[in-house]
Design a protein around this nucleic acid. Structure first.
Length: 569
RNA sequence: GCCCCCAUAGCUCAGCGGAUAGAGCGUUGCCCUCCGGAGGCAAAGGCACAGGUUCGAGUCCUGUUGGGGGCACCA
């Protein structure tokens, strides 16, 4: 369906053109007409501020312009009253009859409510979490997970075909360290004397102690002479299992797992290097071309590395692609990876990253641009880091040191729904102080429950109605009243929220909308009774139908947030 | 030193250049005769500072202050 504000904008633009043709408004170039809901409900459902924008080019006062527009305005079927107010706003109200009829439309659309077609025929990919399998997933990491998965759900609602991807690397030093750490824990569990490395390469988390003991039970001492390699494989499989299980608990499932290593195995990394070199975007040197004498001195007798002239694209400095040792830095495979994404035909590739990786994506975009790819297809959502606080004191997390709070533990202490909502209900740009004690304490007084409770209440009416032998069969929605209409107006905003969230890559908007919807619902529920002796049977049917529509709306919104819709609480 | 993000109510946060800046939690008062109390009604309380752009700025620009992150031949 076409979004109401767009239809309205078109109608307003037509009115202006018509007024100009008629000589009621002078000639001028028409800017984009924007239609927004006003802040205050009394002012209407939608408003146009176009008359104020036109005051200058038309050399007329805005109120006069608005009046002329209104005179030429042809109402679409969904519009009721139109009002011109000072200084020149045009306020539109949805037509009551049309709105009442939406009750049926909402129920008919069901789980496809507010499904849009702006992404129809397009493929989008969302890459998120992408943690290397070195340990359980932490609360900090999980923020990007909630953001990425909700973004994916919203893209689907906007009509995109969406793929969720997890990028990982199981070939680096970290994984070797992990293998070594597990090996030592295994030997320790066998009763062998072991020396724990203190050079920072050892993973200290308790989970490896447990896993070491498990291995002894399962394999006895059969691995006693093995080197780090089999332990790395065992640890990797175990960690990935954990990560996937934890993510599943919060309804996150990836479609594809992309191994960075494959970019080496198929030569993609070297192809990128070759292409960049042929395009003259690289050079070999010990220091960047614009290096200061101090940097020359510092570099000493370091061998020549291969540099990417990223400064040509606006970067602050050139970046090393291949170290003097001959090994690529992360930049090269990262560029190759994104080229791979675009080669797979995605029209949109969203990458959810923590703020600590913010600088890196620019280099990737420079690389894509250098090779003639459309870097605009890659969009990065940067989420500011989550600071975990316990009793007012920050908990510095580190997987390697074994200091962290796992997402699993948090879910145990609260609930998957509460965690999802808590992480989602703030913009990615906002810093997040996650007070663990507070999160647990507040999980019972969370907006999550307020939203879900709206759904529960709807379900409750239908249960009770069934008991009393009341049904909504043959309901006449024209019998609905003003309170119901105010809720239906709010439901009509859902498609706008989806569109805005997708256009701006801001999944948090749906979380706030959900709360607004619940806020609109509960007061109505209080006043609009269905099963009450004084309610005439035909009104009761209409109201029951209405609450059916409300239930559909809450189900859809909860789905979009990856949250459950419980029948009872 | 340079780059990015942030600063809105007591607390946690919304607010995509428009009208009288919102919500949750907390505080205070009130409301259960028939589907809801994880509920309803109401009150108090706020845009860090200084300039600028604009018909119009919490929103855009510059600067200041304060907080977070990043500035490796680490990933």
């Amino acid at each position: 369906m076409k979004l109401l504000p767009y239809q309205l904008a078109q109608a307003v633009a037509d009115a202006i053109t018509s007024a100009q043709a008629n000589g009621d408004l002078p000639a001028f170039d028409l800017p984009d007409v924007e239609i927004r809901p006003p802040k205050r409900a009394e002012q209407g459902d939608y408003a146009a501020a176009i008359a104020m924008q036109l005051a200058k080019p038309a050399k007329l006062n805005p109120f006069y312009i608005a009046t002329q527009i209104n005179n030429h305005f042809i109402k679409p079927d969904f519009i009721g009253a139109v009002e011109v107010v000072h200084p020149g706003f045009i306020n539109f109200r949805l037509d009551d009859g049309w709105l009442k009829q939406q009750t049926e439309t909402i129920i008919a659309e069901g789980e496809q409510l507010a499904q849009l077609d702006i992404g129809a025929g397009k493929r989008a990919q969302v890459e998120f979490v992408s943690a290397n399998p070195t340990g359980p997933i932490t609360i900090g990491r999980s923020r990007g997970g909630m953001i990425g998965d909700t973004m994916a759900r919203l893209l689907e609602a906007a009509g995109y075909a969406v793929e969720r991807e997890y990028y990982f690397n199981n070939a680096g030093n970290q994984m070797r360290n992990l293998g070594n750490s597990l090996r030592l824990r295994y030997l320790e569990a066998l009763g062998h004397p072991v020396e724990i490395p203190t050079d920072g390469t050892f993973y200290q988390g308790d989970y490896l102690i447990d896993f070491g003991r498990e291995l002894v039970q399962e394999r006895g001492d059969s691995l006693v002479d093995a080197d780090w390699q089999p332990f790395k494989d065992l640890a990797e499989a175990k960690m990935f299992g954990w990560i996937k299980d934890t993510l599943t608990r919060v309804r996150i499932e990836h479609d594809t797992f992309f191994n960075e290593n494959s970019l080496y195995e198929n030569g993609a990394v070297w192809k990128v290097l070759k292409a960049l070199t042929e395009a003259d975007y690289t050079y070999k040197a010990a220091v960047p071309e614009d290096a200061t004498p101090e940097e020359h001195e510092e570099a000493g007798d370091k061998g020549a590395a291969t540099w990417f002239r990223s400064t040509q694209f606006g970067d602050g400095k050139d970046r090393v692609l291949v170290k003097s040792s001959g090994e690529p830095t992360y930049t090269l495979p990262d560029i190759a990876y994104h080229i791979n994404k675009l080669d797979r035909g995605f029209d949109l590739a969203i990458n959810v990253l923590g703020a600590d990786h913010a600088a890196q994506y620019k280099v990737v975009q420079y690389g894509l641009t250098a090779l003639g790819y459309d870097a605009a297809k890659v969009h990065v959502i940067i989420n500011q880091l989550v600071r975990a606080v316990r009793n007012g004191v920050e908990v510095k997390m580190s997987t390697r040191r074994g200091v962290y709070d796992t997402l699993d533990a948090l879910i145990d202490e609260t609930s998957a729904d509460a965690v999802r909502y808590l992480m989602l209900a703030r913009s990615a740009d906002s810093q997040m102080n996650f007070d663990l004690d507070l999160a647990v304490k507040q999980s019972n007084e969370n907006p999550v429950y307020y939203i879900q409770y709206a759904y529960v209440r709807c379900a409750g009416i239908f249960r009770e109605a069934a008991v009393r032998g009341v049904s909504d069969e043959g309901a006449d929605v024209t019998l609905l009243g003003e309170p119901e209409l105010s809720f239906l107006r709010k439901v009509m905003e859902l498609s706008d929220v989806i569109e805005t969230s997708v256009r701006n890559f801001e999944p948090h908007r749906i979380a706030f909308y959900a709360l607004e919807l619940a806020n609109a619902f509960h007061p109505i529920f209080d006043n609009v009774r269905v099963l009450h002796s004084e309610v005439p049977p035909d009104v009761a049917k209409a109201r029951l139908r209405f609450f059916g529509a409300a239930q559909v709306a809450f189900k859809r919104v909860l789905d979009l947030m990856g949250m459950s819709a419980p029948e009872v609480m």
